Computed example of a mutant assay.
Amino acid sequence: MGTALHLCVSFNPAQGRKCKYEAQSVRALPIRILSVGKKRSRGLQLMVDEYVDKLRYYCSVEDVQIRPNPQNARDQRAQVDAEDEAVMNLIRSDDWVVMLDERGQDIGSEQMAELVGDAGNTGASRLSFCIGGPYGHGRKMRERANLSIKLSSLVLNHQIALLVLVEQLYRSWTILKGQKYHH
């Protein structure tokens, strides 16, 4: 929404690998991750928690799980619509919304860091990342998202996508702060 809709969309790979914000002061927006999916395995949750804890050194982070198919719809379209509604109820008008989607903009780690840096300049009060359910995102989310990105050219299970996202957000902050990445 607004004029900042195309931030981070026109990356030029020929520009090299440096992030434009590296080691500069960046406004740290709170991050909220909204993911639709079944109960996570203990192993996955431990890994997600590890990266979320590392990320909290830089900004506040909220990991919100949304039950898939909240209305137990038999129809795939109805399931997506119900999940869409559940996610939209958690998004505020002043959120900067990034939708994870296999058809989204293909970005690298430096560009993810720029996305985080750019979001701090939008006037938004929170940066929300949305991971859809088994059948993807609904129409309302597609219309609301400020940006759509993909984490891989491979189609990722939503739980793997979540793990990749939190790891890349942590990596983004180490890039923004000009710090060494610690595994």
Results as ranks from 00 to 15, higher is better:
159 Q>A: 08
63 D>T: 03
124 A>P: 11
183 H>M: 04
122 T>R: 04
115 L>P: 10
113 A>T: 06
163 L>G: 05
57 Y>D: 12
127 L>G: 07
75 D>Y: 00
2 G>T: 14
6 H>D: 11
79 Q>T: 04
59 C>F: 09
80 V>A: 02
128 S>W: 09
105 Q>N: 15
143 E>P: 00
94 D>M: 02
155 V>S: 13
68 P>G: 05
91 I>A: 03
78 A>G: 05
115 L>D: 10
35 S>N: 03
38 K>V: 04
128 S>G: 09
5 L>F: 08
43 G>F: 11
120 G>P: 06
183 H>Q: 10
10 S>Y: 13
32 R>D: 04
2 G>H: 15
177 K>P: 02
180 K>T: 12
22 E>N: 06
12 N>Q: 03
12 N>E: 06
18 K>T: 10
174 T>L: 02
76 Q>G: 00
133 G>K: 08
172 S>A: 14
77 R>H: 01
17 R>Q: 13
94 D>N: 14
64 V>C: 02
149 I>R: 15
177 K>Q: 13
88 M>I: 13
73 A>D: 14
182 H>P: 00
140 K>V: 01
55 L>A: 05
66 I>Y: 01
107 I>P: 08
170 Y>R: 10
97 V>L: 14
34 L>F: 01
141 M>L: 15
93 S>Q: 13
136 G>Y: 00
128 S>C: 13
9 V>C: 05
153 S>Y: 13
183 H>K: 14
76 Q>D: 08
36 V>F: 09
137 H>K: 15
16 G>T: 13
175 I>V: 06
36 V>T: 09
107 I>T: 06
166 V>H: 07
82 A>M: 01
50 E>R: 10
136 G>N: 07
164 V>A: 12
138 G>Q: 14
74 R>P: 02
179 Q>S: 10
48 V>I: 07
171 R>N: 01
150 K>T: 15
174 T>Q: 04
32 R>I: 07
21 Y>K: 12
136 G>T: 09
98 V>Q: 14
11 F>R: 15
125 S>F: 03
6 H>M: 02
44 L>E: 05
13 P>E: 09
75 D>G: 01
79 Q>F: 00
76 Q>F: 00
57 Y>L: 11
165 L>A: 04
79 Q>V: 02
100 L>F: 02
139 R>F: 05
71 Q>L: 07
